[in-house]
């Protein structure tokens, strides 16, 4: 955009910058507002008298002698034991990412190297599975899980999330492996490797960028999941997001909305850091599917 002809006229430049600024406020402001407000008391966060109280923290000052208070966080983390939910989310995410990448890599590789018609049908089935709302499956899980005492525990949720995650993982890794020339593993096979050895010695060393990107999205799916956690986990095993929602039910009656606000901020913070470090991979992953069709 260096040429003079490409330079924008001033009026357009101002409109465009103004629009970017507007979008920036729309996208970022709610998060900063909530972060700031999470250190206030409820009467400041939801201010009837004057909305500037939420900024200055007048009531918080009156109650705690300082415009900032961590009572919301203490209430959520210690009193309501939110750390348990954080721990559960950690366990679920770790296992979901590991298992779904392991089996997804094998499957995606196979789909990318086979030329038979059934690969198409498998991919299409995966696409339909990807489009189905996960809640439609829950009615099918409940009876068998109750029957076999599998309901309410973390391993069940992990395996269900892995399965729900597979269609997306397969599509993503399939298109990624398609971009690795098949001559690589063909030549390894000529040298006497079988298919699995070719995969292990030739493909695994070069597959990491695609696997890391896919892993990030698996992580996000497990982290952001509400439906499965809310319907398949018992109260003591809840992950973060269903727990936040449960806060809304229990704490609102006790006038402790600030617990929920603190929990929401706590659950957002890791994602903030994740985007900071992996922005390039996330953007790459979002566009990969689009560019390759």
């Amino acid at each position: 955009m260096a040429s003079r002809a490409q330079r924008m006229p001033t009026s357009l430049r101002i409109t465009s910058s103004g629009f970017v600024l507007l979008w920036f406020i729309l996208a970022a402001f709610p998060f900063f507002w909530t972060l700031w407000g999470s250190f206030k008391v409820e009467l400041d966060f939801f201010s009837i008298a004057d909305w500037t109280n939420a900024i200055t923290g007048e009531r918080t000052q009156a109650v705690y002698g300082s415009p900032f208070t961590t009572t919301g966080y203490e209430g959520a983390w210690i009193k309501e034991e939110f750390w348990r939910n954080v721990l559960n989310t950690g366990i679920v995410c770790l296992f979901v990412v590991t298992i779904s990448l392991t089996i997804g890599t094998l499957g995606g590789y196979a789909l990318s190297r086979s030329t038979y018609n059934y690969t198409f049908w498998l991919l299409i089935t995966a696409l339909i599975f990807r489009a189905m709302p996960p809640i439609t499956l829950v009615a099918g899980y409940l009876l068998p899980f109750f029957e076999w005492n599998l309901w309410g525990i973390l391993p069940t949720t992990i395996i269900v999330l892995v399965a729900i995650n597979q269609p997306f993982t397969l599509w993503m890794l399939h298109s990624f492996f398609k971009n690795i020339p098949s001559e690589l593993d063909e030549s390894a096979k000529v040298d006497g490797c079988n298919q699995f050895q070719a995969f292990r010695r030739v493909i695994i060393p070069v597959m990491w960028p695609g696997v890391i990107t896919t892993g990030l999205f698996s992580f996000l799916l497990a982290y952001n999941d509400f439906v499965v956690g809310a319907t398949l986990l018992s109260e003591s095993n809840r992950t973060m997001v269903p727990a936040v929602n449960a806060f809304m039910g229990t704490t609102q009656t006790e006038g402790n909305v600030m617990f929920a606000v603190a929990a929401v901020v706590s659950a957002t913070a890791p994602l903030f850091i994740l985007v900071m470090f992996f922005q390039r991979q996330i953007v790459g992953g979002l566009t990969a599917g689009a560019v390759k069709g």
Binding site: T102, I103, G104, L106, G107, Y109, A110, L111, L122, T125, A126, F129, I159, V162, A163, Q166, P167, T169, L170, Q195, F196, F199
Partner: peptide, 9 residues
């Protein structure tokens, strides 16, 4: 290769 993911789905 496809068995584990296929079985899960």
């Amino acid at each position: 290769f496809f068995l584990p993911t296929g079985l899960a789905m």
